[in-house]
Design a protein around this nucleic acid. Structure first.
Length: 179
DNA sequence: TAAGTGATCTCT
DNA sequence: GAGATCACTTAA
């Protein structure tokens, strides 16, 4: 394909860092989906970080299983899993191979809610473990937009009460404030 | 506020 | 193999 590339695709270098750092910087980046040779780009506005084995809210905290295996994989692959019998959730894997970490993409402009997002972009198990690259028709691009720290809200993650008071309260959800 | 829905994980 | 749980959404 010979499309004019206005976004720089983000790769392993960007994602091989702590999930909290990647999460915050993902705000203002673009989630890009290609359908029928057309690229659709949406600015990321809401994310959550899941970092390391110690994070009790993370799927990885009980160690490696078949389900959470992608979290232990190389930075910049997708971790897509099924919950509540009906929803797919999209995560990008962070940290080096063997170190479990991921950022849940909760919202893009005009689509709030992690399960609505995957439905809207037709994301499911097919994307699990795939590299986030243009070739795979689902990736994250940088259009060099700067989100001022002032308008980033840091709040507790959603639906993680089971993690206990300490981990449930960590402000690992990053949201771009509405203006 | 509660139900829907099924894969996954943790016990027996 | 059984039972509980779950990074959610929608309708009431």
């Amino acid at each position: 394909m010979n499309t004019h590339q206005i976004h720089t695709p983000l790769g392993a270098v960007f994602f091989d860092r702590p999930a909290q750092e990647v999460a915050e910087e993902l705000l203002g980046k673009f989630l890009i989906r290609e359908k029928n040779s057309v690229q659709y780009a949406f600015m990321i506005t809401d994310v959550e970080a899941y970092e390391g084995l110690k994070d009790k809210a993370s799927h990885a905290h009980r160690g490696r299983t078949k389900r959470n295996e992608p979290m232990f994989g190389s930075p910049g692959i997708w971790y897509v899993y099924f919950v509540y019998g009906m929803h797919w959730l999209l995560n990008i894997v962070t940290g080096n191979e063997g170190h479990p970490g991921a950022v849940l993409i909760r919202g893009i402009q005009h689509v709030s809610g992690p399960a609505k997002l995957t439905k809207f972009l037709t994301i499911s198990s097919k994307e699990n473990k795939m590299q986030a690259t243009p070739e795979n028709k689902l990736w994250i691009g940088d259009r060099n937009i700067y989100i001022p720290k002032k308008i980033i809200k840091k709040v507790p993650r959603v639906g993680v009460g089971y993690a206990g008071p300490v981990w449930a309260k960590k402000p690992y959800r990053y949201v771009v404030k509405e203006c």
